[in-house]
Amino acid sequence: MSGAKYLNKLIQEIPPSGIRKYFDMASQMEGVVSLGVGEPDFQTPWHIREEAIYAIKSGKTFYTSNVGLPELRKEICKYYQRRFGVSYDWQNQCMITVGGSEAIDIVMRTLLDPGDEVILLQPGYVAYEPLVRLAGGTPVIIELKEENHFKLTKEALENAISDKTKILFLNFPGNPTGGVMNKEDYEELIPLIKAHDLVVLTDEIYAELSYGDKFCTISSFEEIKEQVIIINGFSKAYSMTGWRIGYLLADADIIKSMNKVHQYCIMCPSTISQYAAVEAAAKGDNDCDVHRESFEGRRNFIVNGLNRIGLKCHLPEGAFYVFPNITSTGLTSDEFCEKLLQQEKVAVVPGSAFGKCGEGYVRISYAYSIDEIKEALERMERFLNSLK
């Protein structure tokens, strides 16, 4: 007898992650060069690990406040002021979460009533649409265009807004496209956001990985700041993926309500990880700068390599992904990835995993060594030649 008959219908309809599919396939094969997972290859800086070790030795292993360590919330608010020029009250406008993923879930469950519409930008991160649906919301998709450098335009936003729209969900720098919005780009959107009283949920997990203009957070526009909810975390900037520490910055009333969801399903994030994050937020600016410089060099290397071997690839302005166009091969995104994995043992992710409009592209992470990227490019060139 199968237990499937007991499952929630919505859960049955949600597909598994397209990212994990290829990661799992690659893990069963020998000699694979995997450029599929968005995880920095740097070890967590030693001074951050040392703080975690000290916390364990000191017996700092008990629950913290539901909203997180006061020291951590203070340092996060100082960090946002120092790095991005926006101020938040650590006591009332900051909450610590189990990574950015829990933060997204909390926001959706706190804000959405059944049928509320959430504008999502695609190609976009695989978790966004399922979490909207699980909270009873209705996703409304805006297709980001390569010719617009995968930015959100005023016209596209205007066409997507209805009287049911509650949330505009942004992710810049973007996964998987590497698209970035600067101050001038946001200025065109602010009147629409204000006029329609939209909540702006902005996932800024790649904020420290902007390679051209300095990162601009939409919360820096005071006229809509109270409408903005920031999601961020320590995974990408500090190479702390396994520590699972994220955070939310928002209006005090929203934080208070989100904490109701958080306290009943989580209690609090790992205490040890929180103490490590205090060190990262307070003294990790140089780590962010070093990591960004390294990623920028890898970005330039892989973009040049992909265009050289015949895959058209725009230059992403942020994050650590490239999103080359593979339509010249005549293969679908899934076919391209499966054949590349089977023939040359290179794992990348089909663009279709990030929404229907991602078809015709693949996502390649360059959060790997130059040697691994070089080997992958050589194998991909052989694969492309085999298709001719």
Rank of each mutant, 00 (worst) to 15 (best):
V303E: 01
C265W: 13
A207M: 04
R109W: 10
R20A: 13
K260T: 14
I218K: 10
Y88S: 00
H196F: 06
I96L: 07
E102W: 05
P114M: 14
I373T: 05
S162W: 05
V98Q: 14
V107Q: 02
E375Y: 02
K345A: 07
L111M: 05
E381V: 05
N92I: 02
F172H: 11
A276N: 06
G178S: 15
C268H: 10
H196A: 08
S270P: 12
G174E: 01
D113C: 13
Q43T: 03
I56E: 12
A4Q: 10
L249Q: 02
C77R: 04
M267H: 11
I218Y: 13
S239G: 03
K145V: 14
A207R: 00
P191C: 10
F354Y: 06
I231A: 01
S58C: 07
D285T: 01
E71I: 04
S34C: 08
L112T: 10
V67G: 00
L120C: 12
H47M: 12
S27A: 15
E204S: 03
V98W: 11
K74D: 07
Y247I: 02
E143A: 15
V303S: 02
R49W: 11
Y186F: 14
K60I: 15
I19W: 02
Q28G: 11
F336P: 11
P15W: 12
G100K: 00
V33C: 05
W243K: 00
D251N: 03
C216V: 04
T241I: 00
E188P: 13
E188K: 14
T153Q: 01
